[in-house]
Amino acid sequence: MQPLTTEQIRAVIARGKLKDTIFKALGLFCLSIGLLVIVALIVDMFIKGSERFTLDFFMNFASRRATQAGILSAWVGSLLVMLVTALAAVPLGVAAGLYLEEYAKRNWLTHIIEVNISNLAAVPSIVYGLLALGIFVYQFGFGQSILSAGLTLALLILPIIIVATREAIRAIPAMIREGSMAVGATRWQTCRYHIIPYAMPGILTGVIIGLARAIGETAPIITIGALTFIAFLPPVPFTGEPPAGLFEWVMSPFTVMPIQIFNWTSRPDPAFEVNAAAAGFVLMVMVLSMNAVAIYLRYKMRKNIKW
């Protein structure tokens, strides 16, 4: 075999470098498509929906006439459902994460729970809707209420919160636990006064990401049979006649932002497209700002924590 001349070697190197450059450009191109989609979405919705950004749009109920329709019952419903979801998912998720990291022994039960959590994360969200339809709506008799929807979404985001909690706890060095137990604290006291507070930023990040996911979920809530046309508000939480009146709101029928958008998008009348765009923009602002807060929190955390 003839050895390569210097020119040939240079040509080989140049070709290799060219391929590298082409791939770099390809990578940047693919990334910019992602960015482009986000920008296109936001700009399109903002421009199309701009004529609806009035106080009336936020303070009116849904209506047959596109120009008078608003998102009052939708955003109130979304907030109330999120309240139930957070109240159910946060304690459960943090407790489960705490158990798996600090208490669980390496046995078959722990193994089943862990495998199960990772499998649940891959279950399509609409299947949670069917679960809720069968269990919450009919077996437990909660009906098509805020409670059913909130609990469904809580189950849906539980894996997110558990995983975030576990990661945050795992990052705490063992010496913190040893120090606490060395001065006589029990396991729970160690968790209560050291582990949970130190893991808080990480847990909070997971909770925000989970809630941002839940607020945009449509399919499971449609599946439990939420109505699309609601022209009244649920009772104000915790103000009714105690004790039963306090929780009247959780049994109320409701609608949420994504369902309102779905309803308007699927109407043939183009006037409702404007409403869908405006409501979609509001939902995007909610979701993206929640995600941005979570990303910022994580960024801060990574900079500040030095064990």
Partner: peptide, 18 residues
Amino acid sequence: ELLGGIPTIVFGYFALLV
């Protein structure tokens, strides 16, 4: 991450109307 966090109903709107 933001792209992954966009609600699917918004993507649906995007697919149908854009």
